[in-house]
Design a binder for these strands. Sequence first.
DNA 1: CTGAAAGCGCTAACAG
DNA 2: CTGTTAGCGCTTTCAG
Lengths: 342, 342
Amino acid sequence: MSSLQEVARRAGVSKATASRALSGAAHVSPAARERVATAASELGYVVSSTASSLVTGRTKNVGVITPFINRWFFAEVLEGIEGALIRAGYDLTLFRLPSEPEQRSRLFHYFLVRKRVDAIVCLGVALTPAEVELIHTLRRPAVGIGGAIPGLPTMSIDDVEATRLATRHLIGLGHRRIVHVGGDLGEQMDFEVHARRLAGFRSAMEEAGLDCEGAFRATTFSVPGGYESALALLADPAIRPTAIVAGCDEIAIGVITAARELGILVPSELSVVGIDDHPYAPMFGLTTVRQVPGEQGEKAAEMVVRALADATDPLEPVASEIPIRLVVRRSTTAPPGVQSVR
Amino acid sequence: MSSLQEVARRAGVSKATASRALSGAAHVSPAARERVATAASELGYVVSSTASSLVTGRTKNVGVITPFINRWFFAEVLEGIEGALIRAGYDLTLFRLPSEPEQRSRLFHYFLVRKRVDAIVCLGVALTPAEVELIHTLRRPAVGIGGAIPGLPTMSIDDVEATRLATRHLIGLGHRRIVHVGGDLGEQMDFEVHARRLAGFRSAMEEAGLDCEGAFRATTFSVPGGYESALALLADPAIRPTAIVAGCDEIAIGVITAARELGILVPSELSVVGIDDHPYAPMFGLTTVRQVPGEQGEKAAEMVVRALADATDPLEPVASEIPIRLVVRRSTTAPPGVQSVR
DNA sequence: CTGAAAGCGCTAACAG
DNA sequence: CTGTTAGCGCTTTCAG
C-alpha cells in the first residue's frame, strides 16, 4: 500500500536512509532511525518483497519438493522444515512432484527456476543428474532427504541396514519363519526404498542361513496395505510365520490390526518390527527401527539456511551424505492388566 | 540467468515484442513469435517472476495458513489445495500458524502482507475481524475452510449436526448407554470444533430423552488419544457403554483398537461412529459421518483462483458460507470368515 | 552519517 | 503488428 517513499517523506529523510534504517544493516543516526520506525508503523508500512527481491536477488523463500503431503513420514518432515524455515525468516513454497515425467520437468523448469526460491529441499525425490546440474547452474543451495543424490548433500537412513537390523532383531529373538511385508516393487518410490528394504531383509536372512523363498509379500506402503496383506498371510495357522518385518510402521500397524482381528496374540504368537517410529507404535506395542522425520526436516532446512547465510553469493553445495543413526526401539508392551483381560 | 533483453536481441525484436510473444497474450506475428520461442529455448530463458510480479502486481502465488500439517484432515485438504493451484498455474506458500498470539500477528503482518501472495486460503483458522478487515483492505481474495468466518466465503461441515447425526444413528440402532469421546474443551481448536461436536451429541441425546451426565470423555484429537481414553472407559464391563460417538475418525480408530485389545467385540458389543471418513475406516469396520477433506481443499483453491481470474483488479471477496453435505457412511464390516475365527 | 541517482528485469501504454 | 518509453518499489554505489 504505502511505499518507502512515503515513509521517508514522513520521517523527513531520503528513501535511502529510510531503507537503511528499516533493514537495520547500515549505520543510521539513532534519531533518524527512530523517526523512520515510527513513520513506518504509523503508515503500516511493509516492504514489498517482490521489489526487494528484484534488486537483491534473494527471495527469502525456500522451495520444497515432495511426492506426498498426506503421508505420515512426509508430513512430519514437512513440519520440521516449516518450523526451521520460519524461525530463520524464510517462507516455504511447496511443490508436489507429479509422477508423470513431462509434468515433472515442467515443474522443474517453469516453477522452480523462475527465481522464486533461494534454495531447494528435495524430500523423497531422487533428482536426475540433469536436475542436479541445473540446480548447480542456478547456484542454489539444495539438500535432499530420504536417499542419496550424487552432487548434493543428502540425509537419509540406510534403508538396507534398517530392515537388516529389524530382521536380525527377530532372528535374535529366536524366530525362524519370518516374512517381509514390504512395498510393491512395481510401484517403486524414489531411491528404490522398497527394493532396498527387501534387500536388507534378505541379507539378514541369508546371513543366518534362513530361507527367503516366498518370504516376501508385496503391498501398498500404508496401514490398509499392511492389513489386507496380513489378512491373507496369517489366515492359515499351519503355515503362518512367527514374525514379520514390515516395510514401514504403517504397514506394521496394519499387520498387527489384522493379526488381532484374527485372534493372534501379538507379540506372543506373532512378533512384528516396523521402521520409522510412528506415533501409533506404542499403542500397538510395536517395536520399530527408529528414525525421526521431523528432525531430519529441521536439519535439512537449517542446512540450506546456513548455506544461504554463509554465502555472499549463492553457494555451491557440497556433496556429502549424512546418515541417520538407526536404533531398534522396543515399545513398552501393553499393561499386563490389559493382556489378562483378553 | 539470461534476460529478456538477450532473447529479444537473439530473435531480432524488441523486448516488448519478446515479452508479448512469450506471454502469448497480445498479437504477435507468427514469424516473430516463432523466432522468440526458439531464442528463448536456446538460451534456456525463464521469466524472472519477481520482476514480472513487481510490474503486474500479481505473484501467481497463493498463501495457505494452517495450524497443522501432519494431521490427516489438514494434510488431505492441503493436497487438494495444492493440486488445484498447480493446475491453475499458481504456487502455494505454506504458513503454519503459531499458537502464540504475538507470533500469529507477526505472521500476518510480516509474512502475508508483503505482497507475497495474491490470495489466501485459511485452513482451520478462525480469523479475527481485524484480520479479515486487513485482507479486505489488501483486496485479496480469501476463503476459509473448517468453520465460518464472518466477511469471508467459507466452507465447512456443520459440526453440531455431524455428531447429532452420528448420535441419532446409534440411538436408532437401539443404543441407550452412549458416550462421546471428543476433543478436550481446554485445548480448543479454532471454531470451537470440540465444543460444537459435544453440543451436537448432547442435543441428540436430550432429544431422545437420554441422560448426558458423565457421557463425555475429553481427550486429544488423535488415535492415541482415543486409545488411552477408551482403555479407561471400557475397562469395567459393568458400567461400559454400548456405543461411542467419537469426536473424529482418529479418535474412533483409537477407541476400536482399545476395545479389541480388551477383547470387546466391535460392533456386536460396542458400536462406534466417527466423523470424517478416514481411509482406515473400512479396516476397522468404522461407521462414519462423511466429509471429504481433499475435495474441500480443491474447491477452496478453485474459488480463489476464479476470483483472481475474474477480477481485473484483485477482487473484494463475497461473504457466504458453503455447507458440506453430511452422510452417515457405514463401512462394510469385516468378512464373515474373519469374524468366526475369533 | 545521509542524499542523489542508477538500475534490478519486466510489462504496459502509446505511438508508429 | 512492433518499437519506444516509462516506470513497478526497492537497494546500493558514490559522493558529499
